[in-house]
Design a binder for these strands. Structure first.
Lengths: 226, 226
DNA sequence: GACTCTCCCTATCGCTGGTAGGGGCAAACT
DNA sequence: AGTTTGCCCCTACCAGCGATAGGGAGAGTC
């Protein structure tokens, strides 16, 4: 494990054959992450599932770090980007919801994102798109960069905490539920009082509450800074 | 590694002696995480630094998972909670900024938070406080729980991405910088255009932009739902 | 027929988190 | 006083990890 290597740029793997292979590896890897979580994953198990022995993996992929970066970028790539013709707010709304969906569809993904910037090709394209959507509509460079960071951090952060609570493998939610139920009421009166709401699961509505709050604010900032 | 165990409730360790020991372990562990990052950490190195052999660690602590949960809760505990007499908005503002500061002061902390709810005593107290601050001021249970989740996810998400970008051990920021500088301009025109702003580092201002946006929105929601 | 490139292999390394089981020592009990 | 209990550490070990070294079989090319 190379530590801080977020895995890009990775060698291009131009020819069709190799590329297919790598895509397959990423696909299976993601499959395993979805099933058992990142904690249980190992490159050896992945190799076994691919029908090869562990060292062969290293011919296709530089290491576990790069592998995860590839998987992450694949997941980010599932988020479709809207037309640049649309309004900035509509574009950010679409991307925000789309990215969240892509991330929570693969509960391990936010965990991969943890210490890593999203610097794969798909991540960069998404980043460029968001910043571009703002700059196209009279946000200055500074406000566009502020806006992007607030926006993307919110989306990623929300998705990451969301998966921590129930979307994990094998219904971690049950554990959270019983844990909350067992809390001493007099010690945490307010938390226990709303524990029911906590798990009610209207995550999309909650997500949208914060997202639209941020977009509202960006609209205000934009008019103020012109 | 027990997998999904976020480590609470842990045995109380009532007597003063043992308690001191555990606190010391947590302190040194956090120290090591700050220095070398979570990737480089190992329980054996920790044991060595504590002057004991690795298996002895397991007398004090159930495992690495619980250890990290303890460390995380210690970090969360660094965030001072404001008086409940203050206004809800002031309280959330204080906690938001305080929690972010506590997290980014220890760059590995957000990473520990990744797949884990903050369910240590300090985390629970903070959670209860935030929800209580809202419920004290006429937010309904549902809106209070919505508000808490949006709020806490934003703070955690922001801090986590923030550390991913430059607060990491050994100036990861340099790497990000050269990476951005090397990007093909015609492929990512908007990203490269604002790359300078990106790294300018006014994170507190950006953080506050989003936080106040969320708090503004909560104020509006509150009046609408009454 | 020799060369090269692709893709896999066996063997092995140093390290990880964690367990089994025991020893010494001090305080507490009888 | 002698025994027991509980604390805290140890040596020895395990299976599994990510990764590397180095080689070999097959296909395509000159």
């Amino acid at each position: 494990m190379a530590g801080q290597d977020w895995g890009y740029p990775w060698p291009d793997a131009n020819d069709g054959e190799t590329r297919l292979d790598r895509a397959e590896i990423v696909r299976v890897c993601l499959e395993m992450l979805d099933e058992d979580g990142v904690e249980q994953f190992s490159t050896r198990k992945l190799a076994a599932r691919l029908g090869i022995k562990s060292p062969s993996l290293y011919w296709h992929v530089k290491g576990k770090d790069q592998l995860f970066a590839l998987v992450l970028d694949h997941v980010v790539g599932q988020c479709e980007l809207p037309s640049r013709q649309a309004g900035w707010r509509e574009q950010l709304d679409t991307i925000g919801h789309g990215l969240r969906q892509a991330l929570i569809a693969h509960p391990a993904a936010p965990q991969l994102l943890l210490g890593r910037p999203i610097f794969g090709p798909n991540g960069l394209r998404l980043t460029d798109h968001v910043i571009g959507a703002l700059r196209d509509h009279e946000f200055g460079d500074k406000l566009a960069s502020y806006g992007y960071i607030v926006f993307i951090n919110y989306v990623i952060g929300f998705a990451s905490q969301e998966t921590a609570f129930g979307k994990g493998p094998r219904q971690q939610l049950d554990k959270v539920e019983t844990f909350l139920a067992a809390l001493p009421e007099q010690q945490y009166p307010d938390l226990t009082a709303v524990a029911g709401e906590f798990l009610a699961g209207h995550f999309t509505a909650r997500f949208d509450l914060g997202l639209s709050a941020i977009l509202d604010r960006l609209a205000v900032e934009k008019t103020q800074h012109r």
